[in-house]
């Protein structure tokens, strides 16, 4: 057997990636890690604190409350947007001139920047002047999202559904379009009903894209910041203060860099863990 030549030059090819990852991930992350285990009063003077900030964050009721709100928000978002997205995708035409019209209409909300969406909905929902706010009040609903927690939640969720359901629709639609006609014919021949076609053909065939849709919507809604910040500013009170808004309050409002860094890391690990669990569960069948 010929001996392999050993050659270290191959490492050169890896350097660009190493540098890129180092600068946009590892170094910032390590800075955060650095802050999370120390106390600083400025002037680059640091005191070692160990896991104190982590313990403090994990035990703080404020963090629990924000995490709780975040989980409730994300669950509602997934429960609304995924079925709604699938339903809309199912009603979209598969052929003809309306296809492009529908696709463009669907893509529109996705093109609008987050802060614009927040401002738009803020104006739209104002109880005295906004179309939605005024309209609801005229119809007899006592609606004021700047004062009522329930109304604030309702508006925030409605805004996110408006902004992001399209993403689920487009992904689900792509999944549906990839199903050959022969599948529907076969189902028709078997005498399968509408529900059976959905359950046994469309849903399994959409599984991959839906996995992606759920992951994306989970990550995005779990890390949501700009839209609720612009719309409600986390209020009324703390009722729409989600994790990211709380984090910014701690880091920039109170300038508690240590606890904020610890919170960031915990936040990051939660997102990573949940995504991993999701992905593993949903891909279980595929790998066999």
């Amino acid at each position: 057997m010929a001996t392999k030549t050993t050659n270290q030059k191959a490492w050169l090819f890896v350097i660009p990636v190493v540098l890129l990852v180092a600068f946009n991930a590892v170094i910032p992350l390590m800075t955060v890690v650095n802050y999370s285990v120390q106390e600083t009063f400025g002037d680059n003077v640091f005191f070692w604190e160990g896991v104190k900030w982590f313990e403090q964050v994990l035990q703080s009721e404020r963090f629990h409350a924000a995490l709780g709100r975040q989980l409730v928000f994300t669950s509602i978002i997934l429960l609304v947007e995924i079925p709604l997205g699938i339903a809309v995708a199912l009603t979209m035409p598969r052929k003809g001139p309306w296809v492009s019209v529908c696709l463009v209409l669907m893509a529109l909300p996705l093109l609008i920047p987050w802060n614009v969406v927040g401002s738009m909905w803020n104006i739209f929902a104002l109880p005295e002047t906004g179309l939605l706010g005024k309209g609801l009040n005229v119809l007899g609903f006592d609606y004021n999202f700047t004062r009522q927690p329930l109304a604030a939640w309702f508006t925030t969720i409605l805004m996110d559904v408006w902004h992001w359901t399209s993403l689920v629709v487009l992904l689900a639609y792509a999944g549906l379009c990839s199903i050959p006609d022969a599948f529907y014919q076969a189902a028709k021949i078997d005498g399968a009903g509408r529900w059976a076609i959905f359950r046994f053909i469309q849903l399994p065939k959409m599984k991959r894209v839906l996995t992606i849709a759920i992951l994306l919507r989970f990550m995005d809604s779990f890390m949501i910041y700009t839209e609720p910040f612009v719309l409600t500013g986390g209020g009324p009170g703390n009722t729409t203060t989600f994790l990211s808004i709380d984090l910014v309050k701690v880091a920039l409002g109170q300038f508690d860099l240590g606890p904020a860094a610890a919170m960031s890391l915990i936040y990051f690990l939660i997102v990573l863990l949940v995504c991993w669990v999701f992905y593993t569960l949903m891909m279980k069948d595929e790998v066999e």
């Binding site: 050959p180 022969a182 076969a186 028709k188 046994f200």
Partner: peptide, 20 residues
């Protein structure tokens, strides 16, 4: 319609219910 007739068909592509 085909549902009301006793027909079976095999296509060129392999058509089976994916999760059964």
């Amino acid at each position: 319609p085909v549902q009301k007739r006793n027909v079976s068909m095999v296509h060129q592509q392999f058509i089976n219910y994916p999760n059964m």
